[in-house]
Design a binder for these strands. Sequence first.
DNA 1: CTTGTATACTTGAGGTCGCAAGCAATATAG
DNA 2: CTATATTGCTTGCGACCTCAAGTATACAAG
Lengths: 159, 159
Amino acid sequence: MSSQVLRPQASIEPDHAAWLRFLRAHAALTRELSGRLETAHGVSLRDYDVLVQLYHAPDHRLRRIDLARTVILSPSGITRLLEGLERAGWVAKHHCDSDQRVTYAVLTDAGLAKVEDCRSTHLADIEELFASRFSAEEREQLAELLGRLPLADAGACNG
Amino acid sequence: MSSQVLRPQASIEPDHAAWLRFLRAHAALTRELSGRLETAHGVSLRDYDVLVQLYHAPDHRLRRIDLARTVILSPSGITRLLEGLERAGWVAKHHCDSDQRVTYAVLTDAGLAKVEDCRSTHLADIEELFASRFSAEEREQLAELLGRLPLADAGACNG
DNA sequence: CTTGTATACTTGAGGTCGCAAGCAATATAG
DNA sequence: CTATATTGCTTGCGACCTCAAGTATACAAG
């Protein structure tokens, strides 16, 4: 009756072991990384992600909607996230002359400094918890494999 | 002045391209998969994940704390998630005779039926959005690579 | 110019999650 | 046995996110 052993993790869906590990690894890693960012610099992983996107953008400026699509957040999500960054003085709104609908999110000088402040420790955290587990080739292959997954927005099916 | 091109995604942190794709792919995939589960069966991805863990457990029963650690949820998180599954009648509480602290989560007959109801369509979704992007070997390698990442709980550092 | 549609953005409501704090039961040490 | 930790679990609170709905701007067709 109790003869079946069933190890807790194995024997689930053999074909989908990769998917399960993907799920678990993401949950564990983002929790740890976000926690470290939060305690060290008072920003969440998403905050940092958005700040970095602006950091690398031309003129440190991006349309809010493009920013949302890049970090895979809903339009309302980006509004609320930027609200926090604006309150902190790291990001400012900038209206578009040619199209009154669009608003840009612009990194302020303080925001630029903040990114550079967080950068090295966060990169070290990623190195420790993620990158160091793989060789350079493995990282490259991992990136290639993950790059095949659908982002549902990048080049959306435009009739 | 506007001569720098800077493609939106590239040129970020060359070494950490894999990490970024990992983040994006997870956000996009879980949104899509959870949305499909929600509309088709009224359960979230996490709900399904928990139900499946119980489905594969001996006697369809797991200590709540072990369940939490397996799906990488905080203790309070598991309490609230199971609250919903209990309200729906898919999971029941079961007290432990030998240790009054622990409570088991047990899959009910309705819960068992629910899992089997969701199973095939969800597996097909995973196949479509995830697994089909890779060959069998690639899936295996992906699983191996992802398996190296820290889960921060599996064999926690026990002095 | 007017009507209809698409886009950019914001707001309200509701759901999910983690942290901190607290309670009860068990294990360990003296 | 008593004192102290540890473990399992729950609750209050706040943070965050999405969906639905609403506003404003732009564009396309008649």
